[in-house]
Design a protein around this nucleic acid. Structure first.
Lengths: 187, 187
DNA sequence: GTCTATACGTAGATAGAC
DNA sequence: GTCTATCTACGTATAGAC
């Protein structure tokens, strides 16, 4: 198979497995068996596991970038953008949990470069939420920034939490939680 | 060292390491080196890693039990109980993240018995929050149960999220998030 | 209870043929 | 690019001495 396709394929699978089992738990053996190639072949594309891990974080970053650029061009209301964000991020998680959450949970086991990447992803996600929420905020400007930031943390925590509970308890609590969030946003 | 002390010591350390690195990432080698004994000695107390994992989940359960019994006896307001819950759970997490969150993230890698225990812990935690929040809810009874449940998921997600962000970004966002939660509870 | 020693599998990684 | 073969290290686990 030509170079870029295989590389992309490996990153896609690694991303999926990170959502399912986490960075620490995935192995070149897992990847190679699921792709029908040998471990050595994966090592050709990503010499070290850290290299693959970094590629996955960059893939996650691209997803956030593409969402940000699509949302800034549109003329939706805050509520619509927030809904859009939620739907898209949930879809990006497939059957697993949020990959950023997964990497945060493994944080202390990650190589230094990946720690840095996970920090950046976390901040990027917050920045996107803050961008969305700032528009809808029409209170005193001094308090606004701090409140919007708090709200961004809350929204992200709730989305990630809903995915965790869905997997653990087999119950989709997202609609309920979104109702809570809408009440907060509308204040 | 006598039997029960050592056993307790091992569970305590395992719990701490689960908060820091997760169940998958901890090893008998870690544990033995930090305790100054051999791996074989740990295996004497917990023959298989799963046995130790289950013991840790039971330890987490005891913490929840003890909180529940302390809170049901007291005559605090909903806000006070919620604050109390938060402070105590945050303290229980030490320098790491919530151990239940950590186990949820590793869910698909856990042995079956541990999966079951993590489910029970998740439900127990929800039950406690629902107990606390139901008292303060004075709306239409039909809607109350569903709303309180949604609020419970939200509160738990926010506490766990705050711990994740604290570790990843080195910033304590808990006070900000708690303000958001208080706004929700007071509606 | 704790030790030494060891077995056995797996994980990350490399060398060299094709 | 992918393979076979191999290496070293580590993880879980057990046997048997003290």
């Amino acid at each position: 198979m030509e170079k870029e396709n295989r590389k992309t394929q490996i990153v896609d699978l690694a991303l999926q497995l990170i959502r399912e089992k986490g960075y620490v738990a995935i192995s070149y053996d897992d990847l190679s068996k699921q792709l029908g190639v040998t471990k050595a072949s994966i090592h050709y594309h990503f010499e070290k596991k850290e290299d693959l891990g970094v590629a996955v974080t960059e893939r996650i970053g691209q997803n956030l970038e593409s969402f940000l650029s699509s949302i800034t061009k549109s003329a939706m209301t805050v509520e619509e953008k927030l809904k859009q964000y939620t739907v898209r991020q949930i879809a990006f998680c497939g059957e697993g949990i949020c990959p950023i959450s997964s990497l945060q949970s493994d944080f202390l086991s990650l190589p230094d470069l990946m720690k840095q990447k996970v920090k950046e992803l976390s901040q990027f996600e917050l920045k996107i939420l803050i961008t969305i929420l700032t528009e809808g905020h029409n209170k005193d400007v001094d308090q606004a920034a701090e409140e919007v930031e708090a709200l961004a943390y809350t929204v992200l925590s709730c989305i990630k939490g809903a995915l965790q509970y869905k997997r653990t308890l087999g119950k989709d609590v997202l609609p309920q939680i979104l109702n809570q969030l809408n009440r907060l946003v509308q204040l």
